[in-house]
Write a protein that binds this DNA or RNA. Structure first.
Length: 829
DNA sequence: GAGCGTAACCTA
DNA sequence: AGGTTACGCTCA
């Protein structure tokens, strides 16, 4: 009986983003399963291509000519049915390609390479020297060059390696016509599995000498040495042995051929090192924590359970709760995933998990090398890792019996991917939790408005923890009005109150955290006389001043420019940096407090691997009085000795032209404040702002989440923002400004045309096309159209966008135009 | 988007 | 004829 498979082919284009049908050859019929990775011929040249089996069927639905599957690439299917369902769901949800989604769950380290090789035609393969001379005498010099290359490479060479010879293609074509050579596709299936070879005697040490005598085996002196060494050492790593005895590989091969030794490959695990250490502290759980744990534990095996939302104040010991739940899951044989916003920022919590659970804790994030990722992947599959801590991509880890997913600080924007597939980790986790009956737990001190709204609608089990773990009060937040400060004649970045408290803290041997949400020295550089502002040459962004090198740097593309003394416009010498960044805070703090020791933590000081952990270690060991940082310091840091937190400019984020700016401000103030007074010493917070009346600031200083939520949800409702509407952003970009604008308008017209044909004639739910707020990034001009599902069903809207931007892409858009579709984006800049 | 075939254009 | 390049059409 004939059988067919429907596969997704690895080819990086939307034009081949559909299921292709291949026939299964009789040989493979019994073994081929859904989820297998197979090799298929693809395209005119039948290039060997990796493909993924989505369906198996007995007959062809339509009359199409099919090719045959060549081979199955792995013994077992690499994907389960649920994995494929997830892929299809994500593709539809985020309007991306199959391959984008497959890449997320694809075994790390696997790779199929394909390449073309030139070799002699069959008849020429067993040539003798005489025949070869005959061929060589019959061809041109150029042709000879290529033949020589083939001979030098043992009769076969990759076409790629001949690229430096001019006009290769034609010469090859000629040789092919003369039937001297053939060109064919080959492939290699890499699995990047690092194995270590162990060597041992194939028999008992006492029997070796007899065996050698009886079988009259000759062994060289080096070989004897090796055998003697192995008599006293059971199993040795081959490289160690070679080095130790200064032996050669040849001796080993020879011994192996004589069947005197066994060679065995064993898995090797590359472990990412962590230099951050912490002592485990015993915490007595309070009743709120216990209740949360009991509730989640008791429902672990219930079907149809809702996800949980833990809304616990900063320092309420959410991590303890997570660990108890994970422990309980572990005892039931269930594995856990803990998502953290950005893994490099949480060495503290990772070390706490490792202290409690030891070797079964794995860490996964994008900064690992491909090899390390692969090893983690394999360790999960083999059950060596039972708990995985990682960034959003850790969701796709191949656990066999996943029972718990925890999303810590779930309000963080890092859970929304910015690149394809532009998925939201919370949504994906919900999908998985329903599919696999997983306990999903979201935790935060400042839940996002969207999710909290859903919790109030009954989509979550809402669990509140209102007491800090050690029953310490939350630090008091004191507001300083910077307008008044200016009236009093204080032009410094530091209010008088903050200066006094810093002095006090230092006197008491306590530590201080200062927060400012901008790195660099100053946020723009301008001429005071003519108003000229230094701009990035590639982006529509003003350059940030970095004092050490006297350069302006673009924080979008990395462009750098030395800042001249003279204004390039009016030649005056009044070029000055304006605004404040962390660098400047550090500098001014040093002028006020002469002997102060300062650590700075922002993207500039933590870009090197391990530098973040180093800064945290230094601060923990009290090698500095003050830690200055951007929003990096708001996430999960836990230092006993910090009593004072200074928020230098609380309204900085408020001015962002984004509907989430109030929410972000509230969250940052709450989170940063939560770094103070976490242990025995009482903490306090100084919050400096020009806008003392804003509801986000007023609510934050009273730790009034409910109040803030009520204020904010009204505004969201009035303007039709999330959670009341979905928003779809389509950004059209390219290096030709006019073309980009034209294409964006084209797209708008096409969509309006389609909508009209469906009887819709109110287009208020479409905003644009407009140039993006940042109209140019990296020489790419950007236009945007925003859609809200106000007046229209979301799936109809998505269907139309998909039709125009994907199906009919080549009709509506020019070839060198990029289109980026984002469902509920983080920001619309 | 890659790979392939083909048309068109240049060179000696 | 030999060499080079630009373009358009698939992809099961």
């Amino acid at each position: 009986m004939e059988k067919y498979v429907k596969v997704v082919v690895r080819s990086n284009t939307i034009y081949t983003d559909n299921l292709f049908t291949y026939q299964i050859p009789a040989l493979l019929i019994d073994n081929l399963e859904i989820g297998h990775r197979v090799l298929v011929p693809f395209g005119r040249g039948n290039k060997p291509t990796e493909a993924f089996v989505f369906e198996i069927s007995d007959k062809l639905e339509e009359k199409i000519k099919t090719k045959e599957v060549v081979d199955i690439l792995d013994e077992n299917p690499i994907f389960k049915i649920e994995d494929l369902e997830l892929v299809s769901w994500m593709k539809n949800r985020y309007l991306c390609t199959y391959i984008d989604c497959i890449n997320l769950i694809y075994p790390k380290g696997y790779k199929l390479n394909n390449y073309k090789v030139v070799s002699f035609n069959d008849d020429y393969e067993n040539l003798n020297q005489f025949q070869l001379q005959l061929i060589l005498s019959n061809i041109s010099n150029e042709e000879k060059k290529i033949i020589d290359e083939i001979i030098n490479n043992k009769g076969k060479i990759k076409v790629e390696k001949l690229k430096n010879i001019s006009n290769v293609n034609n010469i090859l074509e000629r040789l092919k016509r003369k039937e001297i050579i053939k060109i064919s596709w080959e492939y290699k299936n890499h699995k990047n599995e690092k194995k270590i070879c162990y060597i041992s005697l194939s028999m008992d040490g006492e029997d070796v000498d007899d065996y050698i005598l009886n079988h009259k085996i000759k062994t060289g002196s080096k070989q004897k040495e090796i055998i003697n060494f192995l008599k006293y050492n059971d199993e040795v790593e081959i490289n160690d042995l070679l080095e130790l005895l200064n032996a050669s590989r040849q001796s080993i091969t020879s011994l192996h051929e004589k069947k005197l030794i066994n060679l065995e490959l064993k898995d090797y695990y590359r472990k990412p090192e962590s230099i951050y250490t912490s002592v485990s502290k015993k915490i007595e759980l309070n009743s709120e924590q216990k209740n949360a744990i009991d509730k989640i534990k008791s429902q672990m095996f219930d079907e149809d359970k809702k996800p949980y939302m833990i809304h616990g104040v900063t320092g309420s010991g959410k991590t303890e709760v997570y660990m108890e739940i994970i422990d309980s899951a572990l005892n039931q044989g269930l594995d856990s995933i803990v998502l953290v916003p950005e893994i490099s920022l949480t060495p503290q919590s990772i070390s706490r998990f490792k202290n409690k659970f030891g070797e079964i804790v794995g860490v996964f994030h994008s900064q690992l090398s491909e090899g390390q990722k692969h090893d983690v992947y394999k360790a999960i599959k083999s059950g060596k890792i039972r708990i995985l801590i990682g960034a959003r991509s850790a969701l796709f880890a191949p656990f066999n019996s996943l029972g718990v997913i925890i999303i810590d600080e779930f309000h963080e924007s890092a859970y929304k991917s910015e690149k394809n597939p532009k998925f939201n980790a919370i949504e994906v986790a919900k999908f998985l939790s329903v599919k696999k009956n997983i306990s999903l737990i979201l935790g935060s001190a400042t839940p996002s408005i969207e999710e909290y709204y859903k919790a109030k609608q009954g989509e979550y089990n809402l669990i509140k923890i209102q007491q800090r773990a050690n029953n310490k009060p939350l630090p008091k937040i004191n507001v300083v009005d910077m307008k008044e400060e200016l009236n009093k004649g204080n032009k410094s970045i530091f209010s008088m109150k903050l200066q006094l408290e810093i002095q006090e803290a230092i006197k008491n041997d306590s530590q201080i955290i200062l927060f400012l949400n901008r790195r660099g020295y100053a946020n723009f550089i301008s001429c005071r006389k003519c108003g000229y502002v230094f701009q990035c040459e590639n982006c529509d962004i003003s350059l940030t001043y970095h004092k050490g090198d006297n350069i302006g740097r673009c924080h979008y593309c990395g462009y750098e420019k030395e800042i001249p003394i003279e204004c390039p416009e009016c030649k005056s010498k009044y070029v000055k940096p304006f605004g404040v960044g962390t660098q400047r805070i550090e500098e001014e703090l040093k002028t006020i407090f002469k002997d102060i020791k300062i650590l700075r933590m922002d993207k500039d000081t933590t870009s090197k691997k391990g530098s973040l952990e180093e800064i945290l270690n230094k601060f923990k060991n009290k090698e500095a009085d003050v830690l200055i940082g951007t929003q990096m310091i708001s996430k999960g840091l836990d230092f006993d000795n910090v009593t004072l937190v200074g928020i230098l400019s609380a309204d900085m984020i408020l001015k962002f032209p984004d509907f989430k700016s109030s929410e972000t401000t509230f969250q940052l103030i709450t989170q940063v404040s939560g770094r103070a007074g976490r242990s025995d010493k009482e903490g306090s917070v100084i919050l400096q702002t020009y806008d003392t009346d804003h509801y986000a600031i007023r609510r934050a200083i009273n730790y009034d989440y409910e109040g803030f939520y009520n204020d904010e949800i009204k505004i969201r409702n009035a303007f039709g923002y999330a959670p009341f509407n979905n928003m779809i952003s389509v950004v059209v970009s390219g290096n030709n400004e006019h073309l980009v604008k034209q294409n964006a308008k084209n797209m708008y017209d096409s969509i309006v045309y389609l909508l009209k044909s469906r009887g819709i004639d109110n287009f208020e739910f479409i905003l644009g096309p407009n140039p993006c707020t940042i109209a140019k990034i990296n020489q790419n001009y950007r236009w945007q159209i925003l859609f809200k599902d106000d007046n229209i069903e979301i799936n109809l809207l998505k269907g139309i966008i998909k039709y125009i931007c994907i199906t009919k892409r080549d009709v509506v858009f020019n070839k060198d135009i990029n289109i980026s579709i984002d469902i509920n984006p983080n920001s619309v800049l």
